[in-house]
Write a protein that binds this DNA or RNA. Sequence first.
DNA 1: CTGAAAGCGCTTACAG
DNA 2: CTGAAAGCGCTTACAG
Lengths: 335, 335
Amino acid sequence: MAKSARPPTLYDIAKRAKTSPTTVSLVLNDKWRAHRIRPETAAHVMRVAKEANFSVDLRARGLRLARSGLAGMIIPHYQNRFFAGLSESFEAAARQHGLCPAVISTGRDPERERDAVSVLLAQKVESLFITGASDPQPLNALCRRHGVAFVNLDIPGNGPSVVSDNRLGANLLTGRLLERMPAWPGTGPYFVGGLAGEYATDERIKGFKQAVRAARRRADAKQIITCGYEPAEVEAALSAIYSQLGRLPDGLFVNSIEAFEGAVQFIRTLPQEAFADLALGCFDWNPFAAFLPIPVAMVRQDVKTMIDRAFAFIDGDLTADASPVRVAPTLIDGG
Amino acid sequence: MAKSARPPTLYDIAKRAKTSPTTVSLVLNDKWRAHRIRPETAAHVMRVAKEANFSVDLRARGLRLARSGLAGMIIPHYQNRFFAGLSESFEAAARQHGLCPAVISTGRDPERERDAVSVLLAQKVESLFITGASDPQPLNALCRRHGVAFVNLDIPGNGPSVVSDNRLGANLLTGRLLERMPAWPGTGPYFVGGLAGEYATDERIKGFKQAVRAARRRADAKQIITCGYEPAEVEAALSAIYSQLGRLPDGLFVNSIEAFEGAVQFIRTLPQEAFADLALGCFDWNPFAAFLPIPVAMVRQDVKTMIDRAFAFIDGDLTADASPVRVAPTLIDGG
DNA sequence: CTGAAAGCGCTTACAG
DNA sequence: CTGAAAGCGCTTACAG
């Protein structure tokens, strides 16, 4: 109860218990049996420690033991299911490894990414998960120089990396769209959203094209619009397609849930008949999408497995040669 | 480049720079001018430190300075805009205060909440934000015993607390529903979701009743169904109302975005005519709700201001007498 | 069965 | 202008 000015240290406990710091430390770390401390002594120390509301200073312990017990992660943000799920899975896995999770969000800003990695390194994290970094390379180099184990997530870098199998996911999603689209001829499916040159987008485009070709349909360059993720940009892009075709395409692959907002924003401005038959898909998942007036096929990434694989790298159960590890996402059927 | 077994310490830098730890420390902390270190010496030390990829051990510094530079937060999860926004706002504010944010999610599990607070306390956080705790009291007591400044967020506790003005938000939302509902007579609005006895729910029910009374309509007990947040429970509750009334109520206040999933799940099983005129509202916000086939009024909580107020407590600009501070949420009109 | 002492990597009065 | 030394709160060989 007493709220002392300075929280009690292990020495204070030793004094109050009329014993030595050694004994207190041994007792508090549950090593007293191995050191043959008398049970009564141990019990007494524990009681005193509890009464004094003692809590070890993890920093001091870490300093002494040359380990921090910290596992670090940087992540762009928490605003979608994918990243929220990744960070929660990470926290759970870290705890299972006996580590304390330390997650910092970076807003996909390279400078904040660097700062976050630096501060985590300075806190002496034992491993570092680099998620969705705009450019993992310099961050990877930093970790290497500091001798800290790391894994890239979502975007592969120069070292161990775990990503969604974007190509497979896109292939499955596109396949589903094609099934729903009217048979040849027609507009062919369109791919909208994301950035050309960006890893995930490029991979998804590959999967998209594969599926289209496998269905013996055409995938012209003009069917692929990498206009960014901003809802407004996606809305504008769709508007342009609409004017050009004089209608919506038969199938629409929207790249990411953020882009999807823009797509829906545009589609709902149209009369019901205009989109009644649209085959719509989104690479990402959000439960509310199921409630849209048209069915939408979605790809849900497997965050749990991604984190497991990442820890496998850290644990040495997986070697960086096998990088990037691709984790299969799941196709979720709307309707 | 050289990846040494052990990262260099300040002593290593001193040795390589042929100077003393004192000088290195002073230079690295940018206090060399005040201590009249020769500029050349300073420059030299900086170069050596950079070459050696030196990064201070924040734990050691914290230990010495009797401060950690850490600001801690516990939060139920990141899976909705409200909590995701709270944690991101917290991180930003912490950085502005020159502190490193440390956020841990707890899944609304009292045991995990306790563990998280304990570990944060053991890391010697300088302040602790307790968000959405199932029971803040014991956590508040823990912080007090450790002499650590804390604030409760979302759910008020036994000390400084910042919450959304749930009553006001519910009042506004209900008012909006009533405007949209057919004039007397009719079913009156229904309130669905949440737990009786739980702070936020109770407050919102008060706001709901206030608005209903102000509109000179009735709010019977049977119009308020606190069936929990699970979508399935909410779906079942609505189904029951539906059978009982033989139709949907004229107005529906759904308590939380999670509950809202269940509500929509049920509504969409009905024919269009059944819900065409429903006045629907949700206490919480999600962009996709705007895309539903019926307009929905939503309440968006002001996470930025909540965090600002919370830091005001920590900074001593606000005193706990003023607790809980209520932050006005915003009514967002769907349609 | 228990304790004195060294050392983890820092910072800062103090002395010169 | 610069350095030797103490001490932050721990843990653990080592000695007894």
